[in-house]
Design a protein around this nucleic acid. Structure first.
Lengths: 164, 164
DNA sequence: TATTGTTATACTCTATAACTATA
DNA sequence: TATAGTTATAGAGTATAACAATA
């Protein structure tokens, strides 16, 4: 990610070189939303790269992790929790079910709904993926010490806590 | 966003009601990336709603604000700064130019590149939009006091500062 | 009549390849 | 040959409408 030939930049025309004086982003950098997005798009490629070995996208990891912690929830609750529309969740679950990672079973009490559980394989993959995610955490937030990381998470959660 | 009939929830079956016991998200909530995303998708709909009256998407606002602070940059530098590929930036700028908000002008020193500036109308809209964004800031971060908001921004920037 | 979930489809965003014009 | 920008297109992600099954 870092420039590979920093020493050469000074030899180039500052007005046309790629490493020209950094842009003034002071207004944007004063907005929490912009900073959240920048931090998010810095972390996500690292996360996606590590999840690729499990063939899991971030949203797939989210589903597995939620099903591990909340077995037997139905699709409606899961849909709301992860902000994925029911039609899109249906196809997402189709893929995970075809890979034998999750199971849908009709709820005998209300046969309209389906309860979701991880298969044994799904549970095993989820445990490994969560371990990988925890390791990534350290890499992604290496500029922060433990107290700062905890503080950051606390502050972010204050913004969306009412929607949990 | 808040439930409209909270009193009724207790009358419903806790296992099937929409307001059933909140999901256990403890693993996900320990990840900075997940928290960034949740905070981001909490703030953005508010932001988009307020920018709609200017017919600006978030990325359009970003472009206008950067051109206001950095007149005469070329598309390559803008492309890198906002993480939008050159082809997609071209069509984005087509729209803004058709609306008479920005101007592209060939650089006489290197006629391959184009320098970008806001038009008078673009400048006027940008000033108003930035004011709106600043007002939204207070609403979006109402759960934080001034010190906390400043702290949050500082911590987020530590994550992506090396990519600036 | 309302709800859960599905299918089909459309729309937006993002990514890539091939091209023009300039250097 | 390399670079700035464009055009065209493909893909992923997201949103919506209409439907089946069940209550």
């Amino acid at each position: 990610m870092l420039p590979k030939k920093p020493a050469e930049f000074e030899l180039e025309d500052a007005d046309t070189a790629d490493a020209a004086p950094p842009l003034d982003q002071s207004v944007l950098l004063s907005l929490v939303g912009y900073n959240c997005r920048r931090a998010y798009i810095t972390i996500m490629p690292l996360f996606e790269k590590r999840m690729a070995k499990f063939e899991l996208r971030p949203v797939d990891f989210t589903v597995l992790s939620l099903l591990k912690a909340n077995p037997n929830i139905n699709q409606k609750r899961l849909s709301k929790a992860i902000n994925v529309s029911p039609p899109n969740l249906a196809t997402l679950l189709d893929r995970l079910e075809q890979r034998d990672l999750v199971m849908r079973q009709r709820n005998p009490q209300d046969r309209r709904s389906q309860t979701l559980v991880l298969t044994t394989a799904g549970m095993r993959m989820c445990v490994k993926a969560e371990k990988t995610a925890a390791e990534l955490e350290e890499k992604a937030t290496e500029a922060l010490n433990d107290a700062e990381r905890a503080q950051l998470i606390t502050l972010l959660q204050k913004i969306f806590i009412s929607s949990l």
